[in-house]
Design a protein around this nucleic acid. Sequence first.
DNA 1: TAATATTACTACGACAGATAAAGTAAAAAA
DNA 2: TTTTTTACTTTATCTGTCGTAGTAATATTA
Lengths: 109, 109
Amino acid sequence: MISSDVIRGYNDTIILYMLLDNESYGYEISKKIKELSDEKYIIKETTLYSAFNRLEKNGYIESFYKQETFGKRRTYYRITKAGTDYYKEKCVEWEVTKQVINRFIKEVN
Amino acid sequence: MISSDVIRGYNDTIILYMLLDNESYGYEISKKIKELSDEKYIIKETTLYSAFNRLEKNGYIESFYKQETFGKRRTYYRITKAGTDYYKEKCVEWEVTKQVINRFIKEVN
DNA sequence: TAATATTACTACGACAGATAAAGTAAAAAA
DNA sequence: TTTTTTACTTTATCTGTCGTAGTAATATTA
């Protein structure tokens, strides 16, 4: 399991990634993050939903409701153009970040 | 420049790295971090000194004074055994974190 | 020699994001 | 019929970062 402080700067990016190709909703996204990370990262519910709020406020995602014929009503989200642009920026930043942190990592035995 | 939220989980690790082979003090460490990162990461003074306090409280570093014949009195720090162990753990964690985040990073054009 | 810059911190308060705890409510499974 | 799973929402707390300001010594420049 990885610590949450590390992932902090990338939660929004991870969520945007999940929305790149399909619209989705909270519960589904959380399951997929868990799956895609081989259970190494399990996003907390409150973290996820507060991230949705932040992302929507910033114009990176849009929420909407679907006509559901069964189950509890879900809030769906889709990524916006601004969200895609922001995602791309974060991907570039990630490469730089990785290289920077790598300089302070050493194999110590 | 990389965002501080990203580095958040690794500030302590970065500082411990700087102390692995030599004892040092705040101002020197901040200069070296800047240098080693090619100016891509410049740690804020307040962040650095509050990290020192946290690290010392956790037993990862120890502070002491040297007999200085010139200049303002500095607080020196050295890493402890617990600090070295913690550093090693964080290095292992970093490899996992990198791999996890990489799964959510895509080259989008 | 006087003014400015650099070194080397410390104190305080604000803020953002993560998270724990608790609650709601519907549907599906046992 | 009880429990579990799905799908959230609200509130309050905690941690780490960082802006602002201040102190004080030495070194540099005008």
